Simulated assay, not measured.
Amino acid sequence: MLDANRSGTATASPRAAATQLAVTAAVPVPPLSPAGFAARCTRLLLSPYARLSLLVALLVAGAVGVLLFEPQRLLTHGWPPQLGGFAAAVVFGAAYGLCTVAFVPRPLLNLAAGALFGSQLGLATALAGTVLGAGLAFGLGRLLGQDALRPLLRGRWLKAADGQLSRHGFRSMLAVRLFPGVPFWAANYCASVSRMGWLPFLLATALGSIPNTAAYAVAGARASAPTSPAFLIAMACIAVPALAGTVVAWRKRHQLRGR
């Protein structure tokens, strides 16, 4: 029922208003089910930026762990005496891979591998750790960071680097490994954000890391005789690719600027 007030405006009668309120109160409001709440939480946790936050947290935790445990002490204190032979090489290779994910420089680890295990076994251990660390970093970046970071590739240099890695993955990564200049961890995570495949990335890492890793392993094994021909040749093999990589990077810099 509608009643007219003095100003001529129609208003609802008290009985009609009470009936409407009773009907509204009688309509049940569906509660949020546990399944729906769990689905929302799952979507939130699996969102690109939540996964990127997890990746950053893991990397920060790894860097802090490296600062606390100081793996570079292997060069001065040596390997624990409880481990020896092949078991020590396996443990060192696994630790090598984890350390590279946590930003420990590979030259330091390569020198340690040569000093602890000699040239041949040190080279094999360091290469195994290199591939393991590269695979771990690539997987973490691909799983936790790619979806959030790819929309941010808007700059000219970023687009050019992404296109090079995506279209010519094996060739580009092989050049990065052969001519050092880009930090190992940075190359891993940049490749994971691109559309490079797993097989080209790992194969290029394994092949391209052999010369530089061998040079460092020999240098570490012969560090006690710095005037020996083997040590001097190893240092030359380290310096020449570094210089060549600097020249190539300088030329690529001018090419990118001209685009």
Rank of each mutant, 00 (worst) to 15 (best):
202 L>A: 14
72 Q>D: 11
227 T>D: 06
256 L>T: 05
112 A>M: 01
147 D>P: 03
158 L>Y: 02
143 L>W: 09
89 A>W: 12
178 L>M: 08
204 A>W: 11
101 V>M: 09
159 K>V: 14
59 L>P: 03
106 R>E: 14
253 R>F: 12
37 F>T: 03
55 L>H: 01
15 R>D: 03
103 F>H: 05
37 F>I: 01
98 L>N: 01
200 P>W: 12
26 A>L: 12
202 L>R: 09
158 L>A: 15
17 A>S: 09
91 V>G: 12
183 P>Q: 11
115 A>R: 15
69 F>C: 05
180 P>R: 14
177 R>P: 08
106 R>C: 14
165 L>N: 01
84 G>H: 12
51 R>D: 00
204 A>L: 03
130 T>K: 03
219 A>T: 04
74 L>Y: 07
50 A>E: 00
166 S>R: 12
215 A>R: 06
10 A>P: 01
202 L>T: 12
143 L>R: 15
81 P>T: 07
138 F>G: 10
30 P>M: 04
236 A>M: 07
8 G>T: 04
164 Q>C: 09
141 G>Q: 14
166 S>M: 04
53 S>Y: 03
77 H>Y: 12
38 A>R: 13
23 V>F: 00
107 P>A: 02
151 P>D: 11
180 P>E: 15
9 T>L: 10
227 T>C: 04
63 A>F: 10
208 G>R: 14
3 D>Q: 03
72 Q>N: 06
238 I>C: 10
14 P>D: 13
27 V>R: 12
219 A>Y: 12
241 P>C: 00
50 A>Q: 06
31 P>D: 07
88 A>E: 03
142 R>Q: 06
5 N>L: 15
193 V>C: 05
251 R>W: 14
78 G>F: 02
84 G>D: 04
147 D>M: 01
109 L>G: 01
235 M>H: 01
225 A>T: 09
10 A>Y: 03
